[in-house]
Design a binder for these strands. Structure first.
Length: 427
RNA sequence: GUGGGUGUAGCUCAGCCCGGUUAGAGCACUUGGUUGUGGCCCAAGAGGUCGCCGGUUCAAAUCCGGUCAUCCACCCCA
């Protein structure tokens, strides 16, 4: 039996883990400023959480979930997205009783059984935010502003665009679907094979089709979803757009946007890029006023979104956007020459670490030259050198790796050091 | 689920079409280049079941079949 990682799964090793954490904290830092607090929820839920949450006709539920039966005979699924679980937790912990508005964010791994390709793995990280308890357009506006600020602080605002739309309430959408079918059916033959099927399964998606032929047909449609919106939905959209303009958020209204999940009502939006091949969405979300009730909670309006962490990292890489890493931590190398010095070096390293410094040492009895090379490679700013000479006189040599200056000091001086700044005073 | 590409050293790849000496390069790694000093340079060294299985052949990294993995596109989505 071969021991290997599952198809579509990834290990993340050192420099990337650092970047991942940096991206995460950059994003969640913005969320906190908007008053969102973290919630963690299980990776595994009863399958019903997702089938009633996302809608059991959606692709995600129908063919992309990792679903299996437990020993106890329950059907469970690994989470394919965050919202349904958060809503379940929101209801189950009666968070709606604690304050009229609840603002939550989450971050973690999601699982979907899809064929992997660029920007799409079977397990991937999402950071998302959900705002419960307000149906005011200003809530939509706030959450979009938060998403946009997170994107901006990542340095990506020039590489993505924000598109939004209103898809109204289910009834309005049904009527729109009907008109679409009515309009498109006579022209069925000019649609691509896929869209001919969609005509009966999911006509809204035809608007999203990228093939030229379909685009041509759909561009002739003399009406849009907006013509089918209720007055209430239209006012909601107008107020949202007004607020976004007030905040100078560069949105584009795109009536072709439809989302793959059933739970959206009125506002939907996507942050997309043209730099990641066909996996072009880096973040997406919308309003879902009916979901909480559908999952057994009290009537509660809500808006939220999720960001794809790996896609954001890919985009950062492709666009050469550097996140300014928060001041590289200073490194000290403790170098030893000779068998006797080794033990002393280890003790010194230990002492310095207790003072909060990052310290590297060599375990083996290696040459000074090789230890210096290593110090250089690890990017040490200072080296502490303990050799036979130093040992004899109770000294240590301190070398500034940048300037090459080197001086000796009494060993007990190390005990008085308070952090890295004190090295700088010495040399 | 459907189509196409690619699997050779830790990494990036050359060699394959036109089978034939010990399978290569760059980067990285180790050790040296006078006694205890890094970055540059130089030298040496280590490191490979040529994805796997089978076939053709005197001979296969190279040709053929299968298989697995991976990437890309469709689809779907973050």
């Amino acid at each position: 039996m071969k021991i290997a990682r599952l198809h579509g799964f990834k290990d993340i090793c050192y420099p990337e883990t650092e970047k991942l954490r940096l991206v995460e904290s950059s994003i969640t830092d913005v969320f906190k400023r908007f008053g969102f607090s973290e919630i963690t929820i299980p990776i595994l839920e009863l399958s019903g959480v997702y089938s009633t949450g996302l809608g059991d006709t959606t692709d995600i539920v129908q063919k992309e979930m990792y679903t299996f039966e437990t020993k106890g005979g329950e059907w469970v699924s690994m989470r394919p997205e965050g919202t349904a679980g958060v809503v379940r937790a929101f209801i189950e912990n009666s968070l709606y009783r604690k304050s009229p508005v609840t603002k939550l964010y989450y971050s973690g791994e999601m699982f979907r059984y899809e064929k992997p390709q660029e920007g799409r793995q079977r397990s991937f990280n999402q950071i998302g935010a959900e705002l419960f308890g307000s149906r005011d357009p200003l809530a939509d506006s706030d959450i979009i502003a938060m998403l946009w600020l997170a994107i901006t602080e990542l340095g990506l605002s020039d590489h993505v665009k924000l598109e939004l739309n209103s898809i109204g309430k289910p009834l309005e959408r049904e009527r729109y679907k009907e008109s679409l079918i009515e309009f498109l059916s006579p022209k069925k033959d000019s649609l691509c094979e896929n869209c001919q099927n969609r005509l009966s399964t999911n006509p809204l998606r035809i608007l999203d089709c990228k093939t030229g032929a379909c685009r041509e047909v759909t561009s002739d449609i003399p009406f849009s979803i907006h013509d089918h919106l209720s007055e209430q939905s239209r006012e909601h959209l107008d107020a949202l757009l007004f607020s976004l303009r007030e905040k100078s958020i560069p949105y584009r209204l795109n009536h072709r946007i439809v989302r793959g999940l059933d739970y959206y009502t009125d506002t939907v939006f996507e942050v997309t890029t043209d730099k990641l091949g066909s996996q072009n969405a880096v973040a997406a979300g919308g309003r879902y006023d009916l979901l909480v009730e559908r999952m057994g909670g009290p009537q509660t309006p809500a808006v939220g979104f999720a960001m794809g962490v790996e896609r954001i990292m890919l985009l950062l890489e492709k666009t050469g956007t550097r996140r300014n890493s928060p001041g590289k931590k200073q490194i000290v190398c403790v170098i030893h020459i000779g068998e006797n010095a080794r033990g002393v070096a280890v003790k010194i390293a230990d002492g310095l670490r207790k003072k909060g410094l990052r310290v590297e040492t060599e375990y083996e009895n290696k040459s000074l030259k090789s230890q210096m090379r290593k110090a250089n490679r690890t990017g040490a700013t200072y080296s502490v050198i303990i050799g036979e000479d130093e040992l004899r006189k109770d000294l240590f040599s301190l070398r500034n790796m940048k300037t090459g200056e080197e001086k000796s000091f009494p060993l007990k001086k190390l005990a008085d050091l308070e952090g890295h700044g004190d090295f700088r005073k010495l040399l």
